[in-house]
């Protein structure tokens, strides 16, 4: 069913709550060492999907397998492969960070003695680990949450909005840390976010979700490159517009420039046509769209906050 490189397989996952179908048939595979992003607006179903992946809620139908273990038939073995933070990193506030980690370490068989200090060092929490969690800042809680997730040496790390509420420095650190885990430790990391810039900077592949469905899955580069745009600075603009419309689609127009899709083999002929018709072309440049542009296009302009 899986080759050695695929760590997480989801097949036709569905969830109904009451009469409402919230997740409408998701299928995807994650590979070792990649950072996979779940991108979608509020209420798209990211958290619901993640809850199903970690066994907190039962899918109405569909299969989830983690490193070859079916989540429902071999729960303990499958869940052993996962470390996760679902929504906020909630730990016991009346215990110290260290005691929290001890608590969770006791629940997993054969975690070596020194693993706790190892993960504490990994997330850089040595100085405050013996303080009560109630005195921690959000960033520290987030780190402790990650330490907790890494405790059992998981192969897959699932983080729901890991940068939520962090300051810019914290966000960058988190991003670098996630890349480090994937590249150096070979973990598969699944992150969800509605922050497009985040996903763009840290993920290898992205699934764009909307209303319980995945509308696109691809590598970040592909998604962006495929939709590379050309910006034309032309005069007179009306004439250029009617000519270009015969060739391609005009996706934007602002202060004396037109925006079209990029097609490498046709660009020069378009230009030739414009020049021959007496349009003055003063600038042609290509531009990568942000994931944000893409996202809005794909979800049909749904709000994303």
């Amino acid at each position: 069913m899986t080759n050695g490189n695929v760590t997480l397989v989801v097949k036709d996952l569905r969830k109904k709550i009451g009469k409402k179908e919230i997740i409408k048939g998701l299928s995807f595979e994650l590979k070792k060492g990649e950072v996979f992003g779940f991108l979608g607006p509020n209420g798209a179903g990211k958290t619901t999907t993640i809850r199903m992946l970690v066994g907190l809620i039962k899918p109405t139908s569909g299969q989830i397998s983690l490193c070859g273990y079916d989540l429902h038939r071999e729960f303990s073995k499958a869940i052993r492969q996962i470390g996760c933070i679902v929504e906020n990193p909630e730990l016991y506030p009346y215990l110290t960070g260290w005691e929290n980690l001890e608590h969770f370490a006791r629940m997993v068989p054969d975690i070596p003695e020194n693993r706790i200090s190892e993960v504490v060092e990994l997330v850089g929490l040595q100085n405050r680990i013996h303080d009560r969690v109630s005195t921690y800042s959000l960033g520290m809680r987030q780190r402790l949450g990650i330490a907790q997730a890494l405790l059992g040496k998981p192969k897959i790390l699932i983080l729901d909005e890991p940068t939520n509420g962090l300051d810019p420095v914290g966000i960058r650190e988190m991003r670098e840390f996630i890349r480090f885990l994937a590249e150096k430790e070979g973990l598969t990391v699944l992150v969800s976010s509605h922050l497009l810039s985040e996903i763009q900077l840290m993920c290898d592949r992205v699934a764009i979700m909307s209303k319980g469905k995945i509308i696109r899955i691809d590598t970040v580069e592909h998604l962006l490159a495929e939709q590379e745009r050309v910006i034309w600075k032309v005069e007179p603009i009306e004439k250029a517009k009617s000519l270009l419309e015969e060739e391609t689609v005009i996706i934007g127009e602002e202060d004396g420039t037109l925006v079209t899709y990029y097609e490498a083999d046709k660009l020069s002929s378009w230009n030739e046509r414009l020049v021959k018709a007496g349009v003055k072309v003063s600038e042609i440049r290509t531009k990568l769209p942000t994931l944000e542009d893409l996202f809005i296009e794909l979800t049909g302009g749904e709000t994303i906050d």
Partner: peptide, 14 residues
């Protein structure tokens, strides 16, 4: 209510 149930139930324990 504290949300720690999510951590408790995602351990390899029935």
């Amino acid at each position: 209510s504290g949300g720690t149930i999510k951590l408790l139930l995602t351990r390899p324990v029935k």
